[in-house]
Design a binder for these strands. Structure first.
Lengths: 126, 126
DNA sequence: CTCTTGTTTCGATGACCGTCGATATTCGAC
DNA sequence: GTCGAATATCGACGGTCATCGAAACAAGAG
């Protein structure tokens, strides 16, 4: 079941931003919470450096392998990453650039708004 | 302990981003953690809508006054907001645009302020 | 089928976080 | 100085989160 890439096209932190309804507040804070851990930022940063990345490559971040899988699940449910492909028992993850850019847009920086608007459909589920 | 003055001018989530040292990972995740709560996003959003804002105006967010003060302290220590001025017992807070912009830049957003202001003008059209 | 490897899930534990009431502090008014 | 209002801090409680070891699951090799 895919429930990712549903990002409201709203700013929250830019000057002159309109007040947000509670639904958007929770949606935004939930996505920021997915980045509120150094291990998860490291995972996202590693994925941002290359096209895709095997889980086994992420196991030298100082935490155990189940912990890495736990963080991958959180990032996956936040819509920031997704499974690129599976080759045998190897699982390759990749970044979801639209989700990251939507967060940047909410913070007031919109490099290319068309990408954000292209993926903004509704609110997130859980 | 104040250590928030070091805002690294690096991206972490944009395609092709270089690997970050542990210090930057913790710095970034700490700032994202400051936005990982709907009440704090609401505060930042309220401050983004106007130039400055009195604490008493933030007390209709559904939480008690000590809770608002607690969240203000977290946002202040994260460098996202600052005290604009004090008039009597009233305290006015304001956003720190550079800090928010630095976060947007870390996510791969626009590094230039004029673009940020440009998005607030009305290009949110959908 | 059995074995091995890679990944996810489960259960438990310790730490952290959001929230509140009570209290302290600061400032202006009188 | 004394009083009252606005804000900040303290202490405690309940809930959530990060982490781990153990176990379950999946997929290929022999």
């Amino acid at each position: 079941m895919k429930k990712i890439a549903t990002i409201p096209a709203v700013t929250c932190c830019a000057p002159g931003a309109p007040p947000l309804p509670r639904r958007d507040l929770e949606s935004l804070s939930a996505r920021f919470k997915a980045l509120a851990d150094p291990t998860r930022v490291a995972i996202v940063n590693c994925l941002a450096g290359r096209d895709e990345c095997c889980v086994c490559e992420l196991q030298n971040l100082g935490v155990s392998q189940p912990t890495v899988s736990h963080h991958l699940k959180i990032l996956r449910e936040a819509g920031l990453i997704e499974v690129a492909r599976k080759r045998g028992t190897w699982v390759y993850y990749r970044l979801v650039p639209e989700a990251v850019e939507a967060l940047a847009f909410a913070l007031g920086g919109a490099p290319r708004p068309e990408l954000v608007l292209g993926t903004a459909a509704g609110s997130v589920a859980r």
